[in-house]
Design a protein around this nucleic acid. Sequence first.
DNA 1: AAGATTTTAAACAGCG
DNA 2: ACGCTGTTTAAAATCT
Length: 401
Amino acid sequence: MGPIIGMSPDKKAESPGVMGERTGLRGVCGTLPEAESAASPLATSLDRSSSSGDEELTNLNWLHENLLQNFTLGGPEAQSSPGPLFDIEGNRGRPVSSSTASHGGESMKSKPPFSFSLLIYMAIEQSPSKSLPVKDIYGWILEHFPYFSSAPTGWKNSVRHNLSLNKCFRKVERSLGKVNGKGSLWCVDPEYRPNLIQALKKQHFPTAHSFCTPPASPPSAFSPARHLFLQDCSLKESDIDAATAMMLLNSAPGHHADTCDPDSPIDLSRRDSVLVSSDPKQDHNYSSSSFQRCSSRSSSSSSSSLSSLDEAGCESGQARRAGSEGFHSDEDSDEERSSRLPSLTVKCPLPGKRARHESKPELDEELKEAAGSLLHLAGIRSGLDLSKQTAKSKKLEKHRK
DNA sequence: AAGATTTTAAACAGCG
DNA sequence: ACGCTGTTTAAAATCT
């Protein structure tokens, strides 16, 4: 069956992350990738040789150690630090060191709670042109999730696999923006973007809820964050959504640094940029066929960034996946999609999702914010000097081999 | 327990 | 020839 993308089980407890400061929807789709290549990150300076226990930490831990610490530590001061190096452990302002990674920093090396599809999505979204070559996607992942630096190279295969099979991603002919280089650029299919966002958002909540229960070994510094979560617990889900989003927005390191960072990440706040369904069942999926029915169509018109993407280069999207179960862009009927797609788990139980969006703008707004904040978290580290890292990662990569 | 989802592995072809 | 990229298939692991 189809493989695909999504979050793995344990990863399901994810936390959203999201993209960083750089991209913006600024419509950059037109400008393809050159910028991008530079955007490829590289692995941080971790000790790749050390493969400290990764898998051990649960997603929750990962979240605790990373996101939450950010909240607690991420005071204004911390946030102001230029290019905060947000590592999974919550260490900021400095590159992840092997030492951190090896000891207390196991979390750093723990498997990210995001499925490959989300990782890819985040990588792509954080790029200025909203499209990246696989190589840069690898780089982004390595940069943000050092875990992969020490993980067996199979993950790259998984990334490619996801790109190929997951309908959420489209291949863009590189010629559009890059003169040289192998391969194509990959972008997020506007139609499925909401799914991905939804998935990010969705993943967040479970975690947030889980925080309602005292963590196994809550770091002292954790209390504040936890408190916030606890507060959220008293809210109904939709409220949590909004509350969490706000909390994240206000406390996350990169918190709307846009002011100073023109390259702000996905501007999820833009109405048109994201069409998120609040339906918990809606998830992202390869196919997201069902989801499609509910929200995607509208998304095509909804996300400016998306559309810009289309304009930019996803033109090839249509051609893409001709042979696979994949995508098939817009011409595909929903039925086709559903039968073809493997899966993003985005299900849209309620047929009236779209209507809901239209009728409840505020809610929509909240959802967008939530998604945005989540994405933001994931992109906390994107302020790094990506180009440098790219080179490094490459080296490391080779080294590993 | 069954089905769905996600990950991982591997084979293969095309391209630079 | 080699390495990277992209596509497919298959199977295992997990979750619902």
